[in-house]
């Protein structure tokens, strides 16, 4: 096997690691927070506090 074959495998392995990191964290978050808390962001709230569109 040449260097580039190893690189192919290395790329696959790294892909799996990054993918697993995301997946594991995702399931952890889903199981430890309520749906209500996760989707509590509302558009314009920060906006309303930081910018006043008054002349």
């Amino acid at each position: 096997m040449s260097f580039w074959n190893y690189m192919e495998y290395a790329a696959w392995i790294l892909s799996v690691i990054f993918g697993l990191y995301i997946l594991i964290d995702w399931f952890r978050i889903e199981s430890s927070y309520s749906e209500e808390a996760l989707t509590s962001s509302r558009e314009g709230e920060l906006e309303a506090m930081t910018e006043q569109h008054k002349l």
Partner: peptide, 23 residues
């Protein structure tokens, strides 16, 4: 360019790019 004569499988590099940046 580095002298590799086989056909390199580009798939793992494409997948890695997307997953790394998503991470």
């Amino acid at each position: 360019l580095s002298g590799y004569t086989g056909t390199l499988d580009q798939t793992p590099f494409i997948v890695l790019t997307i997953l790394f940046l998503a991470w």
